[in-house]
């Protein structure tokens, strides 16, 4: 019988990081407020008591230093799990992430490995002030040398954080903050998937909706609504934004002929743009309708009282379903 436990995404991340720290004494955790407090979302709660201040410690409020020192520690053989407190606070570290972390393995022709995980709670829906609700994934997915992933459920949170820490390459690990408290079964014995595999969460025959992170739950909701209306939707959790596991999407689109890609980020030059272009190339003769992108708008993330209008919900997905079904 499978060894499973029910956890929230937050608790699953905590358990996954704890397991990684137990398994490898070179794993370090740092960032703003991660030690005694356990981070503003409590993801690293309790780790200080178990591992002590040489394994988990608070960084000064200096994001470039957080990533820059993670790089130096990687050169010394450590595996850092660095927390950036909120999505909108990652930009002071942009040079260290895109020009240093992402490129040092290439610059050194493989002599330097960069096993660094940058954890970023991302996305909106929590009624926050500016800079606390953004979706910066496209910046990082566009940068060669980085891997970018986002779990959507507790089981993936538990396993993907461990796989990210084990990776020899830098991983930007995007945590869907409004889903932190979403619960689900976590299988403790072995992961079902690799870090960079996409997966079909719900099979269907008429339309494929591919999404990731916080939008996966929304996509499943839309699939339920559509079912009641007699439209069969296949839901794909992309899980990895760089690289993207196009094989799973291609197989699905060959079956359904219709693809909607959904995320919170604005759609202009986005993950969905890339998927739409690639699917047009790979599935041209299978498509019954153009690939439709559903996302936020290409504006600064709005004030909290307006975020419901900004964030795509099941109704907005259904509007897109109607459009692709009309072809």
């Amino acid at each position: 019988m499978a060894n499973t436990v029910e956890l929230s995404i937050a608790k699953a991340l905590n358990a996954g990081i704890r397991k990684a720290m137990q398994d490898d004494p070179k794993v370090l955790v740092f960032g703003e407020d991660v030690a005694k407090l356990g981070g503003v979302f409590r993801i690293t709660e309790g780790l200080l008591d178990e591992f002590g201040s040489k394994r988990i410690f608070n960084s000064p409020i200096a994001e470039s230093a957080i990533v820059g020192t993670a790089i130096g520690l990687a050169m010394r053989g450590f595996r850092s799990v660095a927390e950036i407190q909120f999505d909108g606070f990652v930009y002071p570290a942009f040079d260290q992430i895109v020009s240093q972390l992402a490129k040092l393995t290439n610059r050194s022709e493989g002599h330097l490995k960069m096993p660094v995980v940058i954890r970023i709670p991302y996305g909106g829906g929590i009624g926050a002030v500016e800079h606390h609700s953004e979706s910066p994934e496209a910046y990082f997915a566009h940068t060669a040398g980085l891997r970018v992933v986002s779990p959507s459920n507790p089981n993936d949170a538990y396993w993907m954080i461990q796989q990210a820490i084990q990776s020899a390459d830098p991983v930007v690990f995007l945590e869907p903050k409004r889903r932190y408290w979403q619960k689900g079964q976590v299988e403790l014995d072995q992961p079902a998937l690799g870090l960079h595999q996409a997966t079909v969460l719900k099979p269907g025959t008429d339309v494929t909706i591919a999404s990731y992170g916080p939008m996966v739950v929304t996509s499943l909701q839309a699939a339920e609504i559509a079912q009641a209306e007699g439209v069969s939707i296949e839901v794909i959790d992309i899980r990895s934004l760089s690289p993207i596991d196009f094989g799973v999407i291609v197989e699905s689109v060959k079956k359904t002929g219709r693809l909607i890609v959904a995320h919170e980020a604005g759609t202009f030059v986005s993950i969905s743009s890339e998927i739409a272009a690639k699917i047009a190339e790979l599935c041209f003769y299978y498509l019954e309708a153009p690939v439709i992108r559903v996302g936020g708008f290409d504006v600064p993330y709005p004030a909290a009282k307006l975020e419901e209008l900004y964030l795509p919900d099941a109704d907005r997905l259904m509007e897109a379903v109607d459009r692709v079904m009309a072809y």
Binding site: A65, V67, I71, A74
Partner: peptide
């Protein structure tokens, strides 16, 4: 910063 991280190590 890489030097600082290395020295911390």
């Amino acid at each position: 910063l890489h030097a600082a991280g290395y020295a911390m190590g």
